[in-house]
C-alpha cells in the first residue's frame, strides 16, 4: 500500500525526538508543580495543573506516536468518544457524591 505508506511518513526521526523531549519536559514539570503549593490560589489548583499536564502529554502521544493526527475521522471519534464516556461516568457519579446532604426526603 504505497499510498498508505506515504500517509504515515509525516513523522521523521527529529520530529519523534521532539515529541519525546516535550514528554520529558512535561514529566519534570509535573513533578515540580506538585511540590509547589498552588492551592493557595484556589483549592484544587495542584490537581488541575497535574491533570492538565497529563492531558497535554497524552494528547501528544495520541496525536503523533499513535498517528491519530493523520487518521480517519472514525479514529478521532473513538479517541474522543471514549474520554467523553469516561467523563459521563465521572460526572454522573460525582453529581451524586457532591450533592449528598442537600435536601431530605422528610422535607
Amino acid at each position: 500500500m504505497s499510498d498508505n505508506n506515504s500517509e504515515h511518513l509525516h513523522m521523521n526521526i527529529p520530529k519523534y525526538i521532539g515529541i519525546f523531549m516535550i514528554l520529558v519536559v512535561g514529566t519534570i514539570a509535573t513533578y515540580f508543580a506538585a511540590t509547589v503549593d498552588m492551592d493557595r490560589f484556589f483549592p484544587g489548583a495542584n490537581t488541575l495543573v497535574a491533570l492538565l499536564i497529563a492531558f497535554t502529554k497524552m494528547t501528544f502521544v495520541m496525536l503523533f506516536f499513535m498517528h491519530v493526527y493523520w487518521s480517519k475521522r472514525l479514529i478521532w471519534l473513538a479517541a474522543v468518544g471514549s474520554f467523553f464516556w469516561l467523563a459521563i461516568m465521572f460526572a454522573y457519579t460525582m453529581q451524586d457524591y457532591l450533592t449528598r446532604g442537600s435536601g431530605t426526603f422528610s422535607g
Binding site: 509535573t30 498552588m38 502521544v61
Partner: peptide, 18 residues
C-alpha cells in the same frame, strides 16, 4: 504508556504540596 501518564501524578504526586 498513557495510562501511566495519568497514574503517576494521581498516585504519586497529588497532595505532595502539603
Amino acid at each position: 504508556d498513557i495510562v501511566w501518564i495519568f497514574l503517576f501524578p494521581l498516585l504519586y504526586l497529588l497532595g505532595r504540596h502539603f
